[in-house]
Amino acid sequence: MVTRPAQPDAQGQKTQIHGVDALTVVPRRNYAIWIGTVVVLVLAALILKAFASNPAFAWGTAWGYMFHPSILRGLGNTLLLTVLIMSAATLIGTAVAIMRVSPSPILRTFAGVYVWFFRGVPSLIQLIFWFNLSLLVREVSLNLPVFGEVFSVRTNDFMTPFFSAVVALALCEAGYMAEIIRAGIKSVPSGQAEAARALGMPYRKILRQIILPQAMRFVVPPTGNEAINLLKMTSLVTFIAVDDLFYSAQSIYARTFETIPLLIVVAVWYLAVVSIMSVGQFYIERYFGRSDSGHEPEALLSIVSRGLFLGRKKERDNV
């Protein structure tokens, strides 16, 4: 008699074979992972011990400076710089990206040269250049043929350290943002714009309502990277004496010689801000990816991201 392997019958019911339920799987042992784990744990313990036992860290002193008024003012300036520069860079970068995909070869070339120059020159050099603009241009004035001189300002009066930091880093950052946004625009299938054209939408609206919102899904993750980079890059403004977080810390330890505790304060604050930014990025990504998921994100989360981003029209949300 031939014994056949058990097969589902017509109703899909399996015939029972003796002992199937008694089988168990024994996981393979990966000794390399065990060794690695031990090494990492030992290293972590050593590092923690060093942090805790070396009195030069002076944790108490660091904690004491954590909410020092001049540290907090520096932190405020760092955040303000980051927000201003990132907003300006996003606007300029979007404009440059749109030029780069435009039908006009002159606009495309201009945008290409912009990206080449501002991405190519080190940001510290750009920063010091703008700070010293008055060496190049003494004053900025507007002369009209009939009215004569409308206004005239000395460059040194408006090129304050803070303002030149915003201009320099925004122009520099815009070079990176332009490339990110251009990649995002290119990632939107051409059929989307075509369907919008066929419906009679003008180019301006197609760009704003069809292409850019879809490009956002690809733009947000690298933009988060850029924002975090920028936050830390603003510490360069120390060179032109803008009192950001790092500059404030420096000016304290220059007096008190508590160098390490103050560097710890600075590091902790940067880490805290980066953590908050990462959480924000998570929600923004989720918002722009909502058409990909099977369902809308939870109510609270979607409210947060909506509040954070773009204030979309009410009636759209209720659809």
Binding site: G191, Q192, E194, A195, A198, G200, M201, P202, Q214, F288
Partner: peptide
């Protein structure tokens, strides 16, 4: 755009606005 709006078009790949 005004004239185009009077002419509807359907595509092989549908091209619904995916967002």
């Amino acid at each position: 755009c005004r004239r185009r709006a009077e002419i509807g078009m359907l595509f092989q790949s549908f091209n619904l606005f995916s967002h």
